[in-house]
Amino acid sequence: MTACYAVQDKEARGRQFSEEESATRSPWQRDRDRVLHSAGFRTLQYKTQVFLNHEGDFFRTRLTHSLEVAQISRSIARALGVNEDLAEVIALAHDLGHTPFGHAGEDALQGAMASWGGFDHNVQSLRQVTEIESRYHGFNGLNLTWESLEGLAKHHGPVRRPSAWLKTFDERYPQEGGLLLKTHASVEAQIAAICDDIAYHGHDLDDGLRAGLLSLDDIEAVPLLNECLTEARSLDWSGYSSFECEQRIRHETVRRVINRLVSDLTERTRLNLAELAPTCADDVRYAGKDVVAFSPAMARKNKEIRIFLYANMYRHWRVVRMARKARLALGQICTILGDEPQLLPPPWREKALHYQKQSNEMAARRVVADFIAGMTDRFAMEEHRRLMDLSVLG
């Protein structure tokens, strides 16, 4: 039974371009399928989460991160009786605009595009599904539903200061009122957004331990992690080798962390919804605050995990050194191609030169940013060699 405050199939607000809906799939199942078949989704397989793609086959990528966010989102949506398919598609699409080399790549593009409208991977995800994908007759993008686009636009909550592109897109969106940027998102979109953090903390902790950047003893300093580690260590590990024992304790610890976060989020959100007593999805949008949230105590514990990972993993010298190289490489690519768009491959070259002929440097630079944002780690490294190494043919 779908809750009254869930986004309902019969209340779907439609798509930017009119299409006949599927007879066998809901609008959001169709959105999900379009995301799964998109070029942008495939490239996530070779885009950095924390470790660059060539650093190891077992570390998370943007693709596996997105799949984990989707799995957790569906579980919570099901527990709350809301639209699982909508939560899933937002989770799967939320990182489609991410650059190669993770946040280091985004920092590089932000710096290189500072004078040309800036760069934000959340806005880029919207650009990917509304403009950059070119698969269908009659329109660019994937022509996702209004509800899916709303969830992507408000991934971090109401948009108080939209970028120039997002503001323009919102103003010309055919649905009256655009994407309602200043309101909160649906329950489903809020679920996908906070599950992004839950997945981050779980798999980054796992990858950090696997890579040797963190040890099990290190995480004892964080209360929630220590609680879960103590439980895992207290199990009967007789019969396992010391190596296998440590490996399984790591997994048991991480899954307990995720379970604690998910359980608290689900219970607290139930209480928040009962207090708000919404009768429709719009009641959630106009509530004035997020309804999907941790309890205050768990929010503090979640923040402690974030602080710990930032200090001990994201700022680890091995990660910082690789991030610095990534920023330099991507910044150089953006500067070279922005200054000389004739070096771009077709059809990107034709697009950028077309805008330059119109004296629209802002649009020409945006073409370059779109091209770079769509690169995989591997392609970006090869492109940097092609542009910088005289021994490599263009």
Score class of each variant (00 low, 15 high):
Pro174Asp: 07
Val187Ser: 12
Glu350Ser: 03
Arg161Ile: 05
Val69Leu: 06
Asn53Cys: 14
Thr130Met: 06
Pro100Ala: 09
Ser234Asn: 13
Ala108Thr: 00
Arg260Ala: 04
Ala232Gln: 12
Ile72Asn: 15
Asp107Tyr: 02
Leu229His: 05
Pro296Gly: 07
Pro341Met: 11
Gly177Val: 06
Arg135Glu: 09
Gln247Phe: 01
Ala185Val: 10
Glu227Phe: 08
Gly151Asp: 09
Cys4Ser: 15
Arg233Tyr: 05
Gly56Ser: 08
Ala164Asp: 08
Tyr173Val: 00
Phe294Gly: 10
Thr61Ile: 07
Asn53Trp: 12
Arg386His: 05
Gly102Trp: 06
Leu126Gln: 00
Tyr240His: 14
Gly212Asp: 15
Ala380Gln: 04
Leu180Thr: 04
Glu275Ser: 10
Leu149Pro: 00
Val50Cys: 13
Ala199His: 05
Ser234His: 09
His103Phe: 10
Asp170Gly: 01
Gly117Ala: 00
Asn272Glu: 14
Thr43Tyr: 08
Tyr310Leu: 07
Ala87Phe: 06
Asp217Phe: 14
Arg62Ser: 14
Ala77Glu: 13
Ala193Cys: 11
Ala373Arg: 00
Asp57Cys: 12
Gln8Cys: 01
Arg127Phe: 10
Gly178Tyr: 04
Glu244Thr: 14
Asn312Ser: 04
Ile198Ser: 01
Pro27Lys: 03
Arg256Asp: 14
Pro345Ile: 07
Ala373Cys: 05
Ala189His: 02
Thr266Met: 06
Ala380Lys: 01
Glu150Asn: 04
Glu246Arg: 03
Leu126Pro: 01
Asp282Ala: 09
Asp107Ala: 09
Ala287Asp: 13
Ala6Leu: 06
His98Tyr: 11
Arg78Phe: 08
